[in-house]
Structures are given as structure tokens and as C-alpha cells.
Amino acid sequence: MTDTTVIEKPRSFSRDVWDQFRTHKGAMAGLIVLATLILFVVVGPFIWRIDPTFVEPDAAKMIMSRNKPPTWAHPLGTDQLGRDMLARMMAGGKVSLAVGTVAMLISIFIGTFIGVMAGYFKRLDGTLMRMTDLFLALPLLPLLLVLMMLFGDRIRALLGPEAGTFLLIVFAIGVTSWMHSARIVRGQVLALKEREFVMAAKSIGTPSRRVILRHILPNVVSPIMVAATLGIAGAIITESVLSFLGLGFPPDFPTWGRLLYDGVEYMQLYPQRVMWPGLAISLTVLSVNYIGDGLRDALDPRIRGR
């Protein structure tokens, strides 16, 4: 062996990933946009201190202040009740982003778990995949409506109206959107399971649990990442659908999806009413997509080396 005394220290894994991530221009742009959006909804309300639900108590004044175009007093204009759109965008974004992220996490967790179990353990495959088919075949909207109707009041009574609704919506979206990722993950696991490195791990005596954690999961990261980024968008939209049907958050409680639906009626006259929430949702989805792309590349050592 040549100079065995000089051995490189193992490079830190997170350092490697970050170095690669930084070279992905789209992902960096996405990260900046998403960070700006998060800053906007989290820090924004402390700077722009107008109450998003404030309606002018004087009826005449209220009518005068409806559907205003952008002014210095209301940079994004006002809605049909004269509420400040900027403040509503901030408040709505907080809820939308939180719902999107948490619902996506729940759905990815369930989807990956079911997918890995079905793909890896042959005995569970039939049962789990038929269950997945069952969920896929269920008409989602009626299911969500029934879910809300049955458990809505009880959970709201237990946790308070806002936290209760949030939990219910996140849970409802999570348990009804995991099927596609489960199918994708199962397919990947079935292919990976027959690869020789999994066979090698078994011949070493690695128990199934660690074979899955060490060999299977890191290799199904790519499809999971794609499903996750798409899942955020889907969750934000589904939440707005639920709110629109009156089963999500109460009508005066702003979310991006809610603002979008409220604005649809006035789209011809006041296009800015739908433009802002639409833009915010699109930007979120796009930036999350790019971040997912960059992260997937950064986690793959074959790409990282280049």
C-alpha cells in the first residue's frame, strides 16, 4: 500500500449534500423563493399589522372600501368586504403552507410505509395492495365530507375550532392521498429486493428491518421526493376545495385556496383578487418542486460526484 499514513478524514455527509445542492441553480432559486414566502407569512404579520378579518363597522364606509385596486393603504387592494388583501394573504399563507406540509408528510409516511411493507413482505402484498385499490376506488370528496361530518364537531369541541379543524383537514387529506406514492414505492421495492446487494445484506445476516432502512429506503428516495413535492401542491388545493364546500376552515378564516375561491366570482372585474393567491400557490408548488429535484440529485452519490 502507498502512504497509508495520509488518509482523508471521512467527509461529512450533510456537507457533501449541501455542496451538491448549491450547484443546482433551480433548487437554490426555489429555496430562496420558498424562504421568502415563509418569511412573508411568518414575519409579515408583525410588520403589516392590519387585522385580516377587520371589516369597517360603518356600512357606508365599508361599501366605499370594497374591491379597491392597490393603494398605499392597501398594497394588494381589498376584497368584497373591504378587508385588506395583503393581511389576508399573510394569514392565509400560514395556514396553507402548514396544511400542505403536514398533510404531505402524513401522506408520504403512510404511502412509504404501506409501499415498503407490501413490496418487501410477500405475505402482506395482496392484502395491502387490495386495501390501496380500495382507497383509490373510493370517491374522495364524499368520503371527506362524511369524515368531516362525523368527526368534525367532536374534534373541534376537543381541541378548539382552529386546531381541531387544522388537525381534521390535515388528517383527512393525508389519509386520502397516500395511495399513489404507495404504489410507486411498492414497485421500486419489488425491483430493489431482487438486487444482489439486498441478497448480500441477507447473507450477512442483516435483519429485515435494517435491510429496509439501510438498503431499500435510501434507494427509493427519488420517487418519494417527487411524490412529496407534488403532494404539497395537491394538499393546498384539496384544502381550498374543502373550505369552498364549507367543510374546512370557517368562511372568514383566510387560506390561499379560500381567497382564490372567493375571488373567482369577481375575476372579470377585479382580476387581482385571484392573481395574488394563485401566484402564491404556484410559486410554492414550483419552488418545492425545484427543491425536491435538487435534493434528489444531491442525495444520489452517482450524481454528486460529477
Binding site: F197, M199, A200, A201, P218
Partner: peptide
């Protein structure tokens, strides 16, 4: 194993 490419976990 036979295939040294497939028998090593790429990650």
C-alpha cells in the same frame, strides 16, 4: 456475488 455492480449498494 456475480455482478460486482449490482452487489454493492450505490448509496
Amino acid at each position: 456475488f456475480q455482478d460486482p455492480q449490482a452487489s454493492l449498494n450505490p448509496r
